[in-house]
Design a protein around this nucleic acid. Structure first.
Lengths: 121, 121
DNA sequence: TAGGTACCTTACTTCAAAGTGGGTACTACC
DNA sequence: GGTAGTACCCACTTTGAAGTAAGGTACCTA
């Protein structure tokens, strides 16, 4: 069963390099908190920092701020900060971020279904 | 744009836990060498240890053995060892592994296309 | 004996992601 | 003074995946 014959367009000699720019983006996206942030934002609503903190269970302020900064720098996440006090910052997926999530969510759903998780319990 | 309304079936309260069995499988799959092994195997042919060593550019014997052991224990990879000397071991995707790869490959293709890589150069 | 084959295992080290604990600034309320 | 809310930043520490170097199996050939 060939599931990836068109990988050959990207890697014609069948050798996959470990170190490349893809790896940097992949590692940010699949980082411990990155994937949870992207999943939360993939539901479509812009979310504020504090809401994301509630949604990514167990994340520290430091890791959330760092992760959001990284993802915004990488491109999948848009950071919309209003010039007000107290701060009011909203995060949402960019267009490329939504395309990314469209691939990421089915993967996570598959993994959740095969890892013996019972998240609805 | 709702891209993941059915995530709510898995996580009805919208809170994504960081520590669960999914995380273990996800971390193995997306590990540095795990993803390259799965991509190589996703082309459909069973591959021997030494061929995988060539295909995952830069992997050490130790990391390759360790990664293959882990993925075989997790389930996506089948290890077929013949009782001969010198050893003859073939690795291939299990049925669940092929389903996993069906989700993983488009994700990697997307990321490769957006990370400024030029793998065909 | 030495060298080769293919596929590992073990002991120890490195290092980047994650973690911990402190801090910032402003407003409102008790 | 204290608490609460908003959203971070900095210095330092811990942790576990990855790395390095050495070891191993069993058989074959010169």
């Amino acid at each position: 069963m060939l599931v990836s014959s068109n990988l050959r367009e990207l890697y014609p000699d069948g050798v996959f390099p470990a170190a490349c720019h893809s790896r940097v983006l992949l590692d940010h996206v699949m980082s411990k908190w990155g994937v949870l942030v992207l999943l939360a934002l993939s539901e479509g609503e812009p979310l504020r920092w504090s809401e994301l903190r509630r949604r990514a269970q167990g994340v520290s302020e430091k890791m959330l701020a760092q992760t959001l900064r990284t993802l915004a720098d990488d491109g999948p996440v848009l950071r919309d900060a209003r010039p007000v006090v107290p701060p009011h910052v909203e995060y949402s997926l960019t267009e490329p971020g939504a395309e990314l999530a469209a691939h990421l969510v089915p993967l996570m759903q598959w993994i959740a279904g095969h890892a013996g998780d019972n998240p609805t319990s």
